[in-house]
Design a protein around this nucleic acid. Structure first.
Lengths: 207, 207, 207, 207
DNA sequence: GATGAATGAGGTTTCATTCAT
DNA sequence: GATGAATGAAACCTCATTCAT
């Protein structure tokens, strides 16, 4: 009586399409990606996409969420550590930059996918909310680390933990854009080193 | 016998349309902006836009150039100074952040317009080249300042001037995005302060 | 699971649209025919036309090919004969003129459709090539017949078979135009008779 | 009180524009020719064309009339002769074919201009009327010649003078098309010779 | 008369979405 | 569930025509 497809099967299908969509969005952007292209990339027909997603916009929303979840999971695996705040921060940064640099120069890693969609997301209430939530999560996490460092006398007490965390996130986002424009000329390792050097000790020479 | 319009009038018209286009692009993005919308914003008919610009893409290219020129002009007026490298850098940053924060919270300043177009520009060879040139200019300028500071013993000699300059530019670009998403919640003054504090002395407490 | 349409069905659809397009082109010409008009004539929506033909020009190309094929098929059925060259030529001509005259006076037979498109085709490299091939085929066929007649002592030996063939084809094309302009006043039977009389014996009275 | 431009000047202006229009129409066809192109070819502004012609269609109509007049004038100068009907006919044909072949292979002589417009003209009541009148004139003229030849016992009496005239006109029109398609490969002299040979004695060998 | 900026209707083409099979 | 033919709303762009100068 019930040839109902299992939930696992459905989930698998959805993820399959989401991967295809992410791949397309990253390469062409949201607007220039056609449902046909997503279907073809997924090896399905146009109609099949609509079985799992009600509209192109819904697909975008889920792609964003899916990417955020995957990135958070990847990082979560790396970070839980003990020790000095600076060491934790460095571990975080190392993980993050390693993720960013992992694809080949021209390739589109998960994070780059996300960036390609920002302009689109900024126009949509729902996606802006999702981005705000995501940003809020990372800001809180980083700010917590910084606050911990200040409390322990490791970091300068004049720092504003929240805005400092925002500054770090901003720098990373900016690097992602730079990597998109400069292509092969962008050196993630150098970017990582320069940012960490700056963060650790600042510009001004210590006496 | 000769109602041939003056070149000044034509330039004025072009700028008028460019302003309208920038306004639309900033709000809706390039793809979602229709020529009709630009024309309406400029108080003209669709056809009139095509008298001055040969295509939608040509309009985009000129908007980008126009914005870059205006921003560069604004900054050029502020910066030529003498004194310590840090002071110069601070002057630059102050000018830049002031420009960024000047529009009302929800408004679209020139820079925000530019950011809205990044995703589009990243897909177009010509615009990528324009962006690279622009980036190159700012990187060179900032890196020069940093190098000067190092030479004069003011900045730490272990810094890589170029990549450090890139980090600063990245942070600013990242802030612009944050301001788009967070809207009124984003505080440019706080961002400015936090970034400068971070840059000056870094995270690690000085003994 | 598989509503994939059969190839036969697709061919039928294509022909259906080609017929509609030929009908429109014949009446209005290529330029003045809108895709909407073709779609309406075919009882479809504008979009459906683009499912089968990639552009208006592609549609034109296929219409021409389709018409040429149909005409050639019609004639091929009539002509293979034995006997005197003049008889063969007369059979050809009879078949051709009968085709030309078959539609009602105001109607557009296949050939008239083709003529309507000539001015358009003359501007397009690909279609010019197609026309040249078509012309070449008929010239070769007719010239062969004439050469045969000369060899057998039936036709005058001072004739240039190729150019004489071209003259006959020219006369027929010219008649097609005349029929378009003169409408009901044009009498295909009379045209046929006059041309054959002229061809057979020329103007000059035989002694 | 009267800076009114002389009628001569106006006529000159009109002809100047008509020449420019004919040139454009011949090269691009009516539909693909823009008023701008005509104006540019005439060295005037778009608006100036509208001073002398009320619309693009009016321009077309006058171009056709202008061409017809010029062709008729050219021929009228050549033909008034005395002598045998065949000689007169040959004189006519020689003049006509010489006109047709005069431009360089790729060039557009007056007649070719006209042909380019036929498809357009066939759709317009007024122009169809003009064409019918023109055709009627030539048919009458030629038919008169043929009738004269018959009466004088020079031409075969079984010929239908009117339809025979139509056949000759048709052949010439057909040659014009052939020359458009075949370009440099078309040989007007050979066409002339072949047609005259055919007309004179027909295909069938005389004993 | 002459100019050319401005208009806006209309054409081709794309593509998200629907639905019969 | 899956398919892809069909739809039709828009989008970009062209160009005949008008009209203030």
């Amino acid at each position: 009586m019930c040839p109902k497809i299992t939930i696992e099967y459905e989930q698998e299908r959805r993820c399959h399409i989401l991967d295809a969509a992410a791949w397309c969005f990253a390469r062409k952007g949201y607007q220039a990606t056609t449902i046909d292209a997503v279907a073809m990339q997924a090896g399905l027909s146009k109609g099949a996409v609509y079985v799992y997603f009600s509209s192109k916009e819904a697909l975008l929303l889920e792609v964003v969420e899916y990417q955020q979840t995957r990135i958070a999971e990847k990082l979560a695996r790396v970070l839980p550590e003990k020790g000095a705040a600076l060491e934790k921060l460095e571990a975080y940064a190392a993980a993050y930059f390693s993720m960013l640099g992992e694809g080949k120069a021209g390739e589109c890693s998960d994070l780059k996918v996300a960036v390609q969609l920002w302009a689109e997301l900024a126009k949509n209430e729902k996606t802006v909310a999702a981005l705000q939530r995501d940003y809020s999560y990372w800001r809180t996490t980083l700010a917590g680390l910084i606050r911990e460092g200040i409390t322990q006398g490791e970091f300068a007490h004049h720092l504003d933990p929240d805005m400092t965390a925002m500054s770090l996130l901003a720098a990373i986002d900016g690097f992602i854009w730079q990597s998109l424009w400069l292509g092969e000329d962008f050196n993630w390792q150098a970017a990582h080193d320069a940012l960490m050097a700056l963060i650790r000790d600042g510009l001004v020479k210590r006496r």
